[in-house]
Amino acid sequence: MVDREKLEAYWKKNLSLIRNVLIVWFLVSYLAGILLVDVLNTIKIGGYPLGFWFAQQGSIYVFVALIFIYAKLMGKIDEEFDVAED
């Protein structure tokens, strides 16, 4: 049987990672794609305003990157608590 304190610590780290990923997701999608679009539109990337780029493509790239970052960090947490899959 696994120690209850170890399980609680594992779950706490898991929730902390999920919270941080969701915060980044929110900041990129809501702030950069909606609220800060006018400010970001003053910067051009490839001839397109940065606000438009974030709303159309940039946020998708960040979301895909977050998937890989989450998987890698969750793997490290699993190894730390000795629950990793082989």
Rank of each mutant, 00 (worst) to 15 (best):
E8L: 14
L73R: 15
W25Y: 11
I77P: 13
A55G: 03
V24N: 06
Y48L: 13
V37W: 03
E85A: 14
G47F: 04
K76S: 09
L17F: 06
L27K: 08
L36P: 02
W11A: 07
E8T: 11
I23E: 08
A65V: 02
N14S: 15
A84C: 06
K72S: 07
R19Q: 08
F52Q: 11
A65T: 05
L50P: 01
L17N: 08
G51L: 03
S29H: 08
Y61S: 01
Y61E: 04
V39W: 05
E79S: 15
L40V: 08
F63D: 06
V39Q: 13
F52N: 12
V64T: 11
A71Y: 00
V2Q: 11
D78K: 15
S29G: 05
L31P: 00
F63G: 02
Y10G: 10
F54S: 03
W11M: 14
W11E: 14
D82R: 13
G33M: 04
Y30Q: 12
L7I: 14
V37E: 13
G33P: 04
G51C: 08
N20F: 03
L50N: 08
F54E: 04
Y30R: 06
N14W: 12
A55I: 00
Y10C: 03
R19G: 07
V37C: 07
I34H: 05
I77M: 10
Y48G: 01
E85S: 15
I34D: 12
Y70D: 07
W25Q: 12
A9Q: 15
K6P: 00
L66G: 03
G46Y: 07
R19H: 10
N14V: 06
E85K: 15
M1K: 12
P49G: 15
A9G: 04
F63H: 07
M1A: 13
G58T: 03
A65C: 01
L66V: 05
I45R: 11
R4I: 13
L66R: 03
K6Y: 00
S59I: 01
S59F: 00
G58H: 01
S59L: 00
G75E: 09
I77N: 12
F81S: 13
I34N: 09
G47Y: 05
I45C: 05
L31Q: 04
K12E: 12
Y70P: 02
M74F: 09
L17P: 07
L15K: 15
G46L: 09
A32Y: 01
L50C: 03
L22H: 05
E5L: 15
N41Y: 00
Y30D: 10
G47W: 10
E5F: 01
E80K: 15
Y70N: 04
L50S: 03
E5T: 14
E80C: 06
K76I: 06
I45H: 06
K12G: 02
V2N: 11
E79F: 01
K76P: 01
I69H: 02
D82E: 12
V24W: 02
G33V: 02
V62Q: 03
F26L: 07
W53Y: 08
F26M: 07
G75K: 12
N14R: 14
L17G: 06
V64A: 05
P49H: 00
A9P: 06
N20Q: 09
I18C: 10
K72V: 05
G47L: 04
K72L: 09
I60K: 11
A32L: 12
W11C: 06
G58Q: 02
E8Y: 07
R19E: 13
D82S: 13
